[in-house]
């Protein structure tokens, strides 16, 4: 089919309009002069200025980034280990429980995860703060990382690893020199996924944070409960801009990498 039918064109246009118009409106009204978010009163960037002077938001943003970097990094290491064990580990005691624990957090309602972790932290007398949020975020995001990485591990040719071992690599060298470079794109996208999940999380962070550590979503949520405000629009616009740039860059980089990898594989096949 060379041309789209009008039905498909209309449903795609309406669908994407539905997905994007709310965000476009949000962005436009972040540049509104008036405090009233719904009435246009001229262009202004004053809300961005106010946002940058709002210490509470800046602090919360810093806590959020710290938590996201730490939790996604630990989650990537643990999740990759878990994926490797599940795909290559063979049989071991309690394997079913292990894979169950990897998949369960993916479908567990956030309110339950949050509640259970809070009760644990209180039970063992751990003070709630940045550390407890990192522990909580690591736990659920390592499961996402492991799903992403294991889907890559399943498709890759095991004989490459075996060849490295036959040629005298130690298992850890084989992993570092052969396996890791091949699964690297999946590991990176796992990290990115874990990072955004952590940035985005409101419910679990609300349960596991203490008065000393407020994350940005918690801050936004309590501000938004009182109604719409141009400052939140400005903040949202900044976040949308960062994500858009990030996703587009990431997709361009992976595309280039895939082209290069294909070329390398073809070159290897020729020699």
């Amino acid at each position: 089919m060379t041309r789209m039918s009008w039905f498909n064109a209309v449903s795609l246009t309406l669908g994407f309009a539905f997905l994007y118009i709310p965000m476009v409106i949000l962005v436009i009204f972040s540049f509104n002069e008036s405090k009233l978010v719904t009435v246009w009163a001229g262009f202004s960037t004053k809300w961005y200025g106010e946002l940058l002077q709002n210490e509470a938001f800046l602090n919360a943003a810093w806590v959020t980034v710290k938590v996201a970097v730490m939790s996604s990094t630990i989650a990537t290491v643990l999740g990759t280990m878990a994926a490797y064990v599940l795909v290559r580990g063979g049989r071991f005691m309690g394997r079913t429980l292990f894979s169950g624990m990897i998949y369960a957090p993916l479908v567990m309602p956030e309110v339950i995860t949050g509640l259970s972790l809070l009760l644990l932290f209180i039970g063992i007398g751990l003070d709630r703060g940045v550390m407890t949020i990192v522990l909580a975020h690591t736990t659920f995001s390592m499961c996402y990382v492991s799903v992403v990485v294991s889907s890559r591990l399943v498709t890759f040719d095991k004989s490459l690893e075996e060849a490295a071992l036959d040629l005298g690599c130690s298992p850890s060298e084989a992993f570092r020199l052969v396996t890791l470079p091949i699964i690297a794109p999946a590991v990176i996208s796992g990290w990115l996924l874990a990072f955004t999940l952590s940035l985005d999380d409101l419910v679990i962070a609300s349960f596991t944070s203490g008065p000393s550590a407020t994350t940005l979503p918690i801050k936004i949520f309590s501000a938004v409960r009182l109604g719409v405000s141009p400052e939140i629009n400005a903040l949202s616009t900044l976040m949308i801009a960062i994500v858009t740039v990030g996703v587009i860059t990431a997709s361009l980089v992976t595309k280039r990498q895939m082209v290069r990898q294909k070329r390398d594989e073809q070159a290897a096949a020729r020699t």
Binding site: F16, L19, Y20, P22, M23, I25, L26, F29, L36, V37, T38, V39, T196, L199, D200, L202, P217, I220, F221, V224, G227, V228, I232, N233, S236, M239, I240, V243, T244, G246, V247, I248, S251
Partner: peptide, 28 residues
Amino acid sequence: MMLVILPFWTSFLIRVYAWMGILSNEGF
């Protein structure tokens, strides 16, 4: 495909918030 996935990477909270300004009585 990327246009479908992109909103997923944007904050859930912000996407819900966007509708508050649209659906309110004085909303768009």
